[in-house]
Design a protein around this nucleic acid. Structure first.
Lengths: 336, 336
DNA sequence: CTGAAAGCGCTTACAG
DNA sequence: CTGAAAGCGCTTACAG
């Protein structure tokens, strides 16, 4: 890298000390107005650009937060990133973004990298498969606060921000029950993901509240592949009393389920109501879509998580504070 | 931030010099095997994590590349990010990602931040509105190589990697001509964007090659709002000889155009063939879609751009090398 | 094979 | 109001 202008260069030219130059540029009140003027003028003229990495090093603060997400293809994560960026920008913080691509060993490598780079804090969406969170505990050990978002960690003590999945699943299922459906199926995610369990619980509570007896045959667990969803739908449709409504874990499942029905049961397609999580913006272009969809405000999740993280960085919340923070952003049910 | 273990701590405990500890951990060949062993053992036991920011500072290299994109909502940009990440990861480089949100003054601020942080190189997708690229020239002035991707910069000398828009537009239009269409409209982007001009040129070349006389009335320029696309379609449909096919600048336009036809000219919907750029994965869920779509390989664009950037960082390509690099990744036409 | 020393560019308590 | 000095944690040419 070509050498940039340094404080020393300016000091030399101006015949003053490096300290004075530094203080002038930082608008230190101890420095006289004329001196500041002279310094700033030359700095401008010479295109001086402060070397942040020297500054960060000196201050032992990187003014950077680390952000780990499984992947950018998922637009929910992108919304969270935007929320975080919003807050971080206002705090003049940078973001190092890394994708785990749902790979736990990659995830661990990223965390190590974040520690080596001494990020001031970490916000993370775990991979689907993360069960060992020791690396993250190492973060806490070296004083880097960690906030988990969207996916709940399997360990004991943590700070977690997400949407209210229970509420969302409850609302989506109630909507179907209120439409008069009695046979409501649930296609949820793998039970290794805490969110799957929570959404299933919301579904169950809604049934209970609506006086509908739960039926294990109506509950399917899939791992989000088109193939598994088709399987699940097939076995649902073959039941003596097939469902007249399905609450799906998320959009992708609904879409695949509809594809399946179009192919195998085209006459039944319009007899089945779907609800789900996601409220894809692209719905408006679809001919067949869920009757209602839970809109999750991940932008707000990101903002809240970043806000909490900065409180911790500033030390308002001591990081040895072991009360776990658990924020749930409310969900809206969007009727289509 | 809590203090971490430093080289000095290790040196003290081991009764050796900081230099020796440093060299041991860096596997310097000058150090004896036993010493290395002792050092590594303690480092492990004490959970020593090298302070990269000190190292970067010392080496005046940040091992970080800056990446500026208008926004993460656009999945094309995300693909490019992934391609870049792929290469950067292999080089053990980090990425600072920032979004300009199509805001030129934000963009400028980001570049300044990147310079302050002494990134080793910069890859950028300009905002739609960027006309002044002086900040980027400042990067070059301080020795930070810049590579533009996807959107072509308006200045003179630059390195640019994108897809072959001319070829894509040509293929997409030829496909329509080969299907027998004579009245082929073109809905393109604002002519302030060089890509719009290029794609229009591809369309024109295809007409010429197919012996179809161009008709200015068939060419519409929109700024990507639903409203403008509806307007454009309206005026096309009102022509004495309305088009029987439309080549659209991108998916979003096709989708909006189809919405318009469904609403206003439902009977004509199936008489008009569309082609466009984008090949949205979601097409499979749509009932009406373009007959063919140009698939742009932005992952490859990202990889190539990152590859070139690292060559420049390593100095293989001197950055005062003023020959401009201009790479065009081929486009595939996907027939639906 | 090991160590003493300089220095990367900044900030900041302290002295004057 | 200004400056001399120490130090953040590393790497690396140099000496031994």
């Amino acid at each position: 890298m070509k050498k940039g202008v340094t404080l020393k260069d300016l000091a030399l030219k101006l015949n003053m000390s490096v300290s004075t130059v530094s203080k002038s540029l930082n608008n230190d009140q101890a420095i006289s107005a004329v001196t500041k003027e002279r310094v700033k003028e030359l700095a401008d003229r010479w295109n001086y650009v402060a070397n942040e990495s020297a500054r960060h090093f000196k201050l032992s603060r990187s003014f950077t937060i680390g952000l780990i997400i499984p992947g950018l293809q998922d637009h929910f994560f992108v919304e969270a990133v935007n929320g975080i960026e919003d807050i971080a920008g206002a705090e003049n913080y940078n973001i190092i973004l890394a994708q785990s691509h749902e790979n736990t060993s990659k995830e661990e490598g990223i965390v190590q990298m974040m520690i080596r780079n001494r990020v001031d804090g970490l916000i993370v969406v775990l991979t689907k498969y993360t069960t060992d969170t020791r690396v993250f505990e190492q973060c806490n050990a070296v004083g880097i606060p960690v906030i988990y978002i969207v996916r709940e960690p399997p360990n004991e003590c943590y700070h977690y921000v997400s949407v209210n999945n229970l509420e969302g699943a409850f609302k989506a299922t109630c909507y179907l029950a209120n439409k008069g459906h009695k046979r409501i199926a649930c296609i949820t995610g793998p039970k290794t993901m805490p969110i799957s369990v929570t959404r299933l619980e919301g579904y169950m509570q809604a049934l209970r509240k609506s006086g509908i007896p739960p039926d294990a045959a109506l509950i399917k667990e899939v791992n989000f592949t088109e193939r598994e969803t088709h399987h699940a739908m097939q076995s649902l449709m073959k039941l003596k009393q097939p469902p007249t409504a399905v609450f799906c874990f998320k959009n992708d499942i609904t879409l695949d389920a509809i594809v399946f029905l179009k192919k195998k049961y085209p006459d039944r397609l319009h007899t089945i109501d779907f609800t789900d999580f996601g409220n894809l913006p692209l719905f408006k272009y679809l001919d067949h879509k869920p009757v209602a969809s839970v809109k999750e405000d991940f932008f707000e999740v990101g903002k809240r998580a970043a806000g909490l993280l900065f409180e911790m960085i500033r030390g308002k919340k001591a990081d040895h504070d072991k009360r776990k923070i658990n924020v749930k952003i409310p969900c809206k049910l969007i009727i289509n």
